[in-house]
Design a protein around this nucleic acid. Structure first.
Lengths: 244, 244
DNA sequence: GCCGTTATTCTCATACTGAGATTGTCTCAA
DNA sequence: TTGAGACAATCTCAGTATGAGAATAACGGC
């Protein structure tokens, strides 16, 4: 039986309703650590637990639109934020109330301010991804996929510049990679690599106002270039475990 | 307003129903060309046009399960087929009948038999992806994303072996790459590369029964190895256009 | 048996990478 | 004011990967 036949003898409205939500994995870097935006649930199920910000799509609203709205409701930020679809989850029992299919989105932004104290429920806050509370629903799994995707995209896209400000130094960019990947990188090689990938960064001709907090010369400032893919890619230090 | 507050004053059932479907982009290689499985619609809307196989998810059925079922209904194949989630589409007007959110799946398989003559609608058949008829809904876009994903995954995963049979020669594997990427590859370099990537293929110790149809020595036979990621990856000949 | 085809292996020049070292600027504290 | 340590920016050098072309040899078809 395929779609048309199925439709012919099948009225979806006759079945238990399926609701569609979007959930957003919003990542930012604060104080040298990767953080994710979470909201504390005020109601059952999972009252008191933290969850990814999200909600039902509205009539007439496209998916990316819904994701941007959810993010905006928590952070107040709309522009400047890179947002992309992550994956969808629809296990029958993932929400005890009813059948809910959730489309997850991944968002990246430079050091964001504290979220609005939720016009709603209990609370909203940035949490270090390496010190997470227990999450509601299957949000731990969704967040895991989001982190994986972010780490991968750092390799072959200029995504890292989305975590940095308008202008940044090579060292700041390196800190983004080190934070997201969780490994130290060779400063000299990183510098050489960044400048050799066409379109990754472009010089602003300026330098920082002063040296680093603990010394060192002023660094040159760069802005994001026009490349959409990095070629050749920046490869993560080998991950033998992940290969097999 | 976040999920919990929204839920509190909002009953999704009160809104126009949202239906969830899965659509499958099933790819195979037949006669040296990449093909996609399409079904011809028997009813409105888009009656007579071709579309990706798909249909509504059923109560109690998880997403991947639904995708596998849809594929099985058309091909009869269940095992052997690699299947993974592709993306989701939910533009309000993508289906004129009602709000439909579709989760698409990507499937790869070795040269598959002709599909069942659809227990349903009009027809089901493999179509060369470079000679497509007009497609229903936004299926052309979905297929485009599927092809893009397949081409990318060929670079860093052993996916190509999913298009080849149980045992295959290096040349057959090269043909898969050339077909999916649409470019000729240097036979010698390809050979060297495949054998140097750990875990990509492993020797069976056997060779083909005879040489190629137009001559040439017998080729050694290999089977898929245990690698899940290719390292270093096989890079596609440079695609300047796609970088910026 | 001769010719064209194809599998497999080599060569060689070029490009990219990891590790370590060098040079010179700048902050901080004695 | 000065010396120590931090850090940006370059460079060296060896090891590895890649593209292009060629060499060798096994087969099928005629």
């Amino acid at each position: 039986m395929d779609e048309s036949e199925f439709l012919a003898g099948y009225d979806p409205r006759a079945y238990p309703a399926v609701a569609v939500t979007v959930d957003v994995v919003a990542l930012t870097i604060r104080g040298g650590a990767l953080h994710v935006l979470l909201v504390q649930r005020g109601e059952q199920p999972y009252a008191g637990l933290w969850a990814l910000p999200g909600g039902f799509i509205r009539p007439g609203e496209d998916l990316p639109e819904a994701a941007a709205r959810e993010l905006d409701e928590e952070t107040g930020l709309t522009g400047r934020v890179h947002i992309e679809q992550l994956a969808s989850y629809g296990a029958p029992e993932r929400d005890p109330r009813m059948r809910i299919v959730s489309i997850s989105y991944l968002a990246f932004a430079p050091d964001l301010p504290d979220p609005r104290a939720g016009s709603d429920a209990a609370d909203a806050a940035w949490h270090r991804v390496d010190r997470l509370p227990k999450l509601a629903f299957d949000h731990e799994r969704i967040l895991g996929h989001g982190l994986e995707r972010a780490r991968d995209k750092l390799e072959y896209t200029p995504l890292a510049t989305a975590f940095a400000g308008e202008r940044f130094t090579i060292s700041e960019l390196r800190a983004v990679y080190e934070t997201v990947w969780g490994v130290p990188l060779h400063a000299g090689n990183f510098h050489r690599k960044i400048l050799s990938v066409p379109g990754f960064v472009e010089s602003t001709g300026e330098t920082t106002e002063s040296g680093g907090a603990r010394g060192g010369p002023r660094a040159k400032l760069y802005r994001a270039g026009d490349a959409r893919l990095l070629h050749p890619a920046l490869l993560r230090p080998s991950r033998e475990e992940e290969i097999r």
